[in-house]
Simulated scan of single mutants.
Amino acid sequence: MHYHDYQELINNNRKWVSEKLETTPEYFEQLSKGQKPPYLYIGCSDSRMPITSFTRTEPGELFIHRNVANQVSLTDMNLLAVLEYAVEALDVRHIIVCGHYCCGGIEAAYKGTATGVVENWVSPIRDIYMQHRQEIDILPTEKERLQRLSELNVIAQVKNICTTSVMHRAYKTVKYPTVHGWVLDIENGLIKELELPTKEWQAQGILP
């Protein structure tokens, strides 16, 4: 893996700008006129998760919020502000919660090894593990158990999205965004779209 010197970041920016202007002279003029992204992406802060690279999306296409282990905490004002702005001001059509395999936050929660602020932050994942312990522990390898916990965590965070006041307001309108759960497999770069228990959530009054 190649690690850049700090100055390379600035130099690479200059090169990228030049390349963009060569192919599309009005690129930044158009970009500066405002944003209308169709997607809100909530993902993990992991440095291996540049979702624009994995989805080949350009600036202006994804409105992004990231934190450790892609949590949707109902007391996180940062997340709630991003969600409200995305839904009510930007009118996004899709909300994607994306986790990944080989996630340090998931592993720390599973093993109970997190300390300090991180321990507090991933404690909801530990709760998810305890709730699904029978299903997870029966899997033959630790890798499979961690992968399943990553998936269950994403589904739980999608459900949290749907229970927010922001989404409750959206569900009373004609148009509201569709929610999705993804897991990215870092070992092969592929995105797995998870099946969500939408009928169950509708029966519970979480989804319209």
Rank of each mutant, 00 (worst) to 15 (best):
E19K: 14
T178N: 10
S53G: 08
I128K: 02
L194M: 11
I95G: 00
T173N: 11
P50V: 15
H132W: 03
N70C: 05
Q30I: 14
C103I: 02
H94R: 11
D76L: 05
H65W: 04
Y101F: 09
R66C: 04
L83H: 05
E144R: 09
V166A: 00
P37D: 09
S45R: 11
W121Q: 08
V122M: 03
F63H: 12
I125R: 04
D137W: 06
A81T: 15
I155N: 03
Q147M: 12
R48I: 07
N13C: 08
E142P: 04
P25H: 07
S165E: 15
P197N: 01
I128Y: 05
G116S: 07
E187N: 13
P37S: 05
L31C: 06
V154S: 02
Y176A: 02
K172T: 14
I186W: 03
V97E: 00
Q71D: 06
I96N: 00
K199I: 03
L62K: 08
G112T: 07
S150W: 01
V174Y: 15
P177I: 03
T164S: 12
Y6S: 06
G104W: 06
L184Y: 09
L194F: 09
E58G: 08
I106H: 00
Y171R: 11
T198G: 02
H4C: 07
H94C: 03
L194Y: 07
C162A: 14
V122I: 15
V179P: 05
A170I: 11
I106M: 01
Y129R: 07
V154D: 01
E58M: 15
T75I: 13
Q204A: 12
G43N: 10
L74H: 15
E151F: 10
K159M: 06
V97A: 00
R14H: 11
E193M: 04
I206A: 00
I155P: 00
R148I: 03
N13H: 10
Q131Y: 10
K172N: 13
E135K: 06
A203N: 08
G189I: 08
A109R: 02
R93S: 12
G104D: 06
V174L: 13
S123G: 05
H180A: 01
G112K: 06
C162R: 04
I106N: 00
L9I: 09
P197C: 00
G105S: 01
E107F: 09
R56V: 14
E151L: 10
N160W: 05
E88R: 06
T52Y: 10
W16V: 11
T141W: 07
Y101V: 04
F54W: 12
T164A: 07
V174S: 12
S53D: 15
K175V: 02
R126F: 09
L62N: 09
E135P: 00
G181V: 09
R14M: 10
Q202G: 10
I155Y: 01
L62T: 08
I186T: 04
